[in-house]
Each structure stands twice: as C-alpha cells, then as structure tokens.
C-alpha cells in the first residue's frame, strides 16, 4: 500500500527545489469521499494531495489542457510539469509523447502503482453499503477499507472495482521519473477483454439490437470526447461547431464545409459518431475507461475501444502506450497483416 505522505513529499520537494512549475494530482473534492484533479504550484499545497480508490481521473488530460493553454498564451516554459500517474495514465502520456504532443523532458511523471487494486465504481459501492454514506475508501491489498459514519467496513476489492481495473493488464506505470508502490503487472483479477468476449458471443441481430438501445439514448453531450486525453484536436471532424471561424470566413465557406455527420442526437448520427471515435482511437486508446465513466446515459463505450485494442493486439501485435519511439498502429504495417477478407 502506498503511503500518501510519500507522494506529498515528492511533490513538495519538486516544487520547493524549483524542478517543476506545477504538480497535477488529486485532492479531496467537494463531493464527500471523491477525489478531484488539482494543479498545485505552491509547496505548501502539497499536503492537500490524496491518493485512494476514488482517484478515477486520467490526469493526462490536464497535460493536454496545459499544452493548449501554453500555446494560446504563446509561452514556452523552461520547467517541466509534474503529474501523478497511474498505470493507465502513464500509458496515455506515452501515447501523447509518441504523437509528439510534448517531449519527454516536458513532463515529470510521479508514478503510482495500483498494485492489487484500482479505482472503485460508485454504484457498486453504494449497493454494497446499503445506503450508508462513505467518507473515505482506500484499497488495502485485496480489500477495500471504507469509512462510514457507523465505522469501518472491509469489502472485497474485486466487488467494487471498476471493470477496466479488473481487466487491467498493466497497473504499474512503466514510464516514470519516480514511482511509488510495487510492480504487480502479472496480477490477473479478471481475464482481459472479458466483457468484450461476452458481448461478441451474441448473434448479429442481438448485437445490433443492443447497440440500438445504447445509441438511441446518446444525447451527444460529447463528454466522452471532452474527458479523453487522446481527443485533443481543436477541430473535431464530426462536430461542425468546432470548425474555426475567423473574421474573414465567409458565409459561403461556412455553408460549404463538409459535414460528414450531423450534430442531431438521432441513432444513425450517434452510431456514426461513436464508430468514428472508436476508429480515431484505434491503437491510441489505452483503456482508462474514462469515457464510459463520464457518460451520463451509461453507454458501454469501452466495448468499442476494447474491440479495436484487441484486434490491434491479436492481429497486428500492437500494444498502445508501450513505447515512445515506436510507430503508430495505422501508420505502420507488416507483410503478414491479415488480408484474406480482400477479394
């Protein structure tokens, strides 16, 4: 189990010595036990950092935000920014570096291993607690220690953990400057792609019926896109309002822009949007599961991304977030790529 004090000390040291300009981490939020992302710049604030089973967020997103803010302000700082990164966050950072979004020396990665645990899911916990209010939740080995008003409750961690954490193949941040916690990469809680395999056993008609039910609900709030560290384009090809408009843009130009799909939240457009997104994330999605977590209508988006991840792994031997210098999935090929489907 990681002592949160060691993360705080590391952050304080980095800021006090002037080695980094800020630390992105988690702090106690305003919603009870849940942690929330925070950027600290003052060594004094380091004691506010927390690390527990409610640190859901993929903080790599805030590196992207930071980069965008710097570009907007036309600033090029000479100090790196530090980030607290779980296994999945570290993989996301590797993908961003692979795509030259920023350089390795621009980031200082404070790795934290999820060890035998991961993050919890609120509804799973609520169900087990029978309505009791949880004040804090920390994973200790194979158990989740929850503090409620009535006292401490110990629950089996596997029953409250997120599916993505159960299926996680790499809970240890390989890419790091400093790391806390043990490397338990070989842990196997649930076989990877279990949910996907279960889904794929359905017939074609059932699969279609399933996705119809899911995508009819989509309200196109674009939360999945907003929360994704890989969706960093300023201009989104499936969202016409993100197209840049300058004072010299004529009405004709605006009217003649290609709108591949409409923004209206109807089934056909929703499906096309989500399939396009899955394709754009193929070989880049590192399965942090944030899209699924933030979806207000609970669409199982991980299934689509998992599908792409598994195909890439099984047929192209490609592992997203494995190396900074390697080629990307769709910009490389092998002679023995599958081609039997081509006539």
């Amino acid at each position: 189990m990681i002592d949160v004090q060691s993360i705080r000390d590391a952050a304080r040291d980095l800021l006090a010595k002037g080695e980094v300009r800020a630390v992105i981490g988690y702090q106690r939020g305003s919603r009870g036990m849940l942690a929330e992302p925070v950027t600290i710049t003052d060594p004094e604030q380091a004691d506010e950092l927390v690390w527990d089973a409610t640190c859901f967020h993929n903080l790599a997103l805030y590196l992207v935000e930071d980069r965008k803010a710097l570009a907007h302000a036309q600033r090029t700082p000479n100090l790196p920014i530090a980030i607290v990164a779980k296994g999945c966050d570290a993989r996301a950072i590797v993908v961003l570096m692979q795509e030259h979004y920023f350089k390795r020396e621009d980031v200082y990665i404070i790795g934290v291993s999820c060890e035998g645990g991961g993050v919890l899911v609120e509804y799973k916990l609520a169900r087990l607690l029978n309505g009791a209010q949880a004040l804090s939740a920390v994973i200790d080995g194979a158990e989740l220690v929850v503090t409620t008003l009535a006292g401490e409750v110990r629950l089996p961690a596997s029953e409250v953990m997120a599916d993505r954490c159960l299926e996680c193949r790499e809970p240890f941040p390989k890419e790091h400057n400093v790391v806390f916690g043990e490397d338990q990469t070989s842990r196997q809680l649930v076989a990877p792609f279990t949910a996907l395999a279960r889904f794929e056993a359905l017939s074609e008609a059932d699969r279609w019926a399933y996705w119809c039910r899911q995508f009819e609900r989509c309200i196109r709030c674009f939360a999945c896109r907003s929360v994704c560290p890989m969706c960093y384009c300023d201009e989104c090809v499936v969202d016409s309002i993100t197209f840049p408009v300058a004072p010299e843009t004529t009405a004709e130009e605006k009217a003649n822009r290609i709108r591949w799909i409409e923004r209206s939240a109807v089934r056909s457009e929703n499906i096309t949007y989500h399939m396009t997104r899955a394709m754009h994330l193929a070989g880049r999605c590192i399965d942090c599961g944030e899209c699924e977590r933030v979806c207000p209508v609970n669409i199982p988006l991980r299934l689509l991304n998992n599908k792409m991840e598994r195909e890439a792994r099984e047929h192209f031997g490609y592992e997203p977030g494995a190396s900074i210098g390697g080629p990307s999935l769709v910009a490389s090929f092998r002679d023995d790529d599958p081609g039997q489907f081509i006539r």
Partner: peptide
C-alpha cells in the same frame, strides 16, 4: 495499400461488431 489493408481490417471488424451485415462492405484488389 499496405496501410489501407490495416485500416480497412479495423473498420470491417468494427462494422461487424456493431451488427452491420459483413456482406455490405467489401474490399478488393
């Protein structure tokens, strides 16, 4: 066409996963 083969393989798999009939999409040389 090597790059196409990879990309098209992925989109074909995705279409099938969503439940579109596999015969609706075809690639040939």
């Amino acid at each position: 066409n090597y790059l196409a083969r990879r990309k098209i393989y992925l989109i074909k798999e995705l279409l099938e996963m969503v439940g579109v009939e596999p015969d609706r999409f075809r690639m040939s040389w």
